[in-house]
C-alpha cells in the first residue's frame, strides 16, 4: 500500500495493476541490497566500523547507480558529493 501511495504521488501515473507493487517491492529489495553491499565494501576499505553518508556518497556508488544521480533530492542536512559533482 505504501509503495502504491508513493507511485501515485506522481500526478502522471494513472491506474496501477494489483501485482505491480509486488514487483516494485522485490526490485526495491534487490536495489537496497545492492546499495548496502556496495556501501559496506567502501566502509571496509576505509577501515571504519560505522557506515556513514560519506561512504554512500563515494564515486563507486555514483558510478554504480548513474541513473539515480539526477533524481536524488537535496537533503536537509547535507548534499551528496556525487550530486554536487553532477551539477558541476
Amino acid at each position: 500500500a505504501r509503495i502504491k501511495k508513493i507511485m501515485q504521488a506522481d500526478e502522471d501515473v494513472g491506474k496501477i495493476a494489483l501485482a505491480v507493487p509486488v514487483l516494485v517491492s522485490k526490485a526495491l529489495e534487490l536495489f537496497l541490497q545492492d546499495l548496502c553491499d556496495r556501501t559496506y565494501e567502501i566502509t571496509l576499505q576505509r577501515g571504519a566500523k560505522t557506515m556513514n553518508s560519506l561512504h554512500l556518497n563515494s564515486e563507486t556508488i555514483y558510478n554504480g547507480f548513474p541513473i539515480i544521480r539526477e533524481r536524488i533530492k537535496d537533503l536537509q542536512d547535507f548534499q551528496p558529493n556525487w550530486l554536487i559533482m553532477y551539477r558541476k
Binding site: 507511485m7 506522481d10 537496497l32 548496502c36 556501501t39 566500523k49 556513514n52 553518508s53 536524488i72
Partner: peptide, 21 residues
Amino acid sequence: VRVARDAQDLLIECCVEFINL
C-alpha cells in the same frame, strides 16, 4: 556494522527515489 543516521536517511531517500524512477 553500525549505520549512521545520515546514511540511513540517505538510503531511505534513495529507495523512495528508486520507486519514483
